[in-house]
Amino acid sequence: MAETPLQLQIRFFAVLREQAGCSILKLATTARTPAELYAELQKSHALTFPANLLRVSVNERYGEMQTPLTTGDRIVFIPPVAGG
């Protein structure tokens, strides 16, 4: 049985925004976790930033790279922060 694609919204900030060349991306994907999604984006959007240094936010909350995603989720990949 073919998996139903998930409809997701991804926002990019800082170094990822510059690499992706856009701030917001809406896509349909077979990725089921943020880790799988990032691997897909690395190919489709030439993202070179290493996945092991990223954290992820799902629907404006910090989540895990292995958390299962559902349709409509809003994803942000968070490179190392530098506030203050």
Binding site: A14, V15, I78, P79, P80, A82, G83
Partner: peptide, 26 residues
Amino acid sequence: IEEIKRRLPVWKKEHHPDVAAEWVNC
């Protein structure tokens, strides 16, 4: 300030006079 530096999702880009600008910590 320690917690802000550790976890607030804020990034800064440094601009230099001679070399390309870069995102700090990245």
